[in-house]
Design a protein around this nucleic acid. Structure first.
Lengths: 152, 152
DNA sequence: ATAGTCCTTAGAGCCAACTCTAAGTCAAGC
DNA sequence: GCTTGACTTAGAGTTGGCTCTAAGGACTAT
């Protein structure tokens, strides 16, 4: 299957402005051109775009993503660099999950406090300092429930 | 306990530039001044700063945080608004955890592929398309191990 | 008493990542 | 054959969030 830039924009939710910006920045050398000079994405390209989006979501600057894409074009010699990059990136993602779970705990606690305060009509008597220790599995259960509601 | 802006910067890792910027932007009305006109943070202020940081980390724009802080000054009448805000924010955090776990799965898979490719010295024979379905608990175990290595 | 450190202000500068504008090409449908 | 719409380019503008500079005030240690 082949896709125009507009089709990809619709499919991925990444605007065509942004896709062109990425292309200019050298992030998507896998995008080809048809005889009219228009960009053409194939399924592999869409897959690669998904990986780029994953790296971007996990906080990698576009410059580093460009470097990675460049390595991919460099063939098997750059395999160790790419492995190292992903190992480093895993640390970043693990930290993100960790931090997100801490944030979830804090937000959950705030919701508990505000619910009680709303019932009482005042936040004066609500003890706001003690944050109950929810376990990681409690939090994960919440995420699972959320995933179900989103049909993901 | 009272803290100067520099002490808070050291304690929190937020630069004093940024703390002044937040103050100018109306995010920290709880910061008082001493007789010399210098900013003074107390323990409650530090606590509030922690909440602001949590909201920022979970993607809330500074403008919305300013609104929330303003509501806090508005007394018990704004309790429902604040509760609603946190309930909305919880959805955002749940989505972040969900997305981070998906990203972790992708990065893990890439590491597996690249490890095999490095052993073989070539990525030609490595099947890159099948992403093994790790369960959420597998991923969570990884996060736990990570937390231990970080002594958090 | 003078150097060093920490603070103050207003405002300028910077950066990543878009986001859009203007002017133009091309193919399809009425 | 003309309009509509999706695409092309170069380049300008925007946004959010800092990050720093310059000029100056106040306390501390030598």
């Amino acid at each position: 299957m082949l896709y125009s830039i507009g089709a990809v924009a619709k499919k991925t939710g990444i605007s065509s402005y942004t896709l062109r910006y990425y292309d200019k920045a050298g992030l998507t050398p896998f995008v080809k051109r048809d005889d009219r000079g228009q960009r053409v994405f194939d399924d592999d390209g869409l897959e690669s775009l998904g990986l780029i989006r994953c790296l971007k979501q996990t906080g990698m600057p576009l410059e580093d993503i460009r470097q990675f894409v460049h390595w991919c074009d460099g063939g098997d010699e750059t395999l160790p660099e790419r492995l190292t990059m992903f190992e480093k990136q895993r640390e970043a993602v693990l930290d993100q999950v960790h931090q997100s779970l801490l944030n979830l705990r804090k937000v959950n606690h705030k919701i508990d406090s505000y619910r009680r305060a709303c019932e009482l009509g005042s936040e004066a008597q609500v003890d706001c300092d003690y944050i109950p220790k929810r376990t990681a599995s409690d939090l994960l259960r919440q995420v699972r429930e959320y995933e179900e509601t989103q049909q993901l």
